[in-house]
Computed example of a mutant assay.
Amino acid sequence: MGKLYLAYTGMGNELQILSSANGTDWSDQVQAPGMASTGPALGSRDNVLHCVFSFLGIVCYTYSLNSAATSWTQFTPVPNALSALTPAFATTPGVLHLAYRHAADGWVYSTVNTSSGWGQTIATHQRTPAAPALAASGNTLHCATRGDDNKIYISSATIDAGRADPNLGWSGPALVAASPRTYSAPALADNQSCLVYRAAEL
């Protein structure tokens, strides 16, 4: 059974990490280097735990130096990634996929992290007042957002691990079939792409 890892931003903007083997008994919290202005997102690549978060409008990341997640690198900025909201992470074999709402224009952009570092930044063709949600299903990456009209939209991109940047072009955003409305950021998960959102009206 694999470990569970939990990350959160503390009351003093410190980044805290915990782990559990069963979801009931948790380790002591470990403070990772740096400060966060938003909540964090976690992802694992090549058995290494990575963490992204925003600090003063800059998307930053750090990764663990051991399997217990008790030692972390100094955090560094993700190239060209500016956001005041929590970024989103998704994982495919050997690749971390990152999506974030750009602070300047409100559009959502994506990039990837591989053993070679960070890839190019790609626009997802989605604009949002909230944080994006990201999930991988097979060889497709999905990004869900709350639109300026408070409806929920989703875009997808094919994942091609044989290319230098595994995210190919994103499709234009499509309205989720039920046309739900929300005042918050949605959440997205695989098996097979489950969407959760806070309803704007009952």
Rank of each mutant, 00 (worst) to 15 (best):
S54C: 10
R127Q: 15
R146Q: 14
S83N: 05
G43A: 13
A164K: 13
N191Q: 11
A135Q: 04
Y100N: 06
D160R: 12
A88N: 05
H125F: 11
W72V: 12
N13Q: 13
I154E: 07
V112N: 12
E14I: 03
Q29M: 04
N80W: 01
L42M: 10
T182Q: 01
Q126Y: 00
N22F: 00
I58A: 11
N139P: 02
D105S: 09
G162P: 05
D190T: 14
K151M: 10
A157V: 05
Y153D: 04
G117N: 06
Q31N: 12
I122E: 10
S64H: 10
R101S: 09
S184Y: 03
T114Q: 12
G119D: 08
P87M: 05
C194N: 11
L15C: 08
G94M: 07
I154M: 12
V196K: 01
A199N: 10
L195H: 01
F75P: 15
V78N: 07
S179H: 01
S71Q: 14
T140Y: 06
Q120C: 06
G138K: 04
P87Y: 02
L195P: 03
T38Y: 02
P79G: 11
S137I: 01
G119P: 07
H142I: 00
G138I: 05
P166R: 08
A123S: 15
Y197W: 15
N139Y: 04
D148S: 11
V108C: 11
A81D: 07
R181G: 09
H50C: 11
N47E: 15
T128E: 03
Y61K: 04
L42S: 11
R45K: 13
W170T: 05
D25C: 00
G12T: 13
A104I: 11
Q74T: 15
S110T: 15
D165F: 06
G10M: 06
A99L: 11
D160Y: 02
T140M: 13
D28A: 15
D149A: 04
L202G: 10
N113Q: 12
Q192S: 14
T114M: 07
A36T: 12
G43F: 01
L56W: 00
L82F: 13
F53T: 06
K151V: 01
D148C: 00
A88Q: 02
G2D: 14
S44H: 00
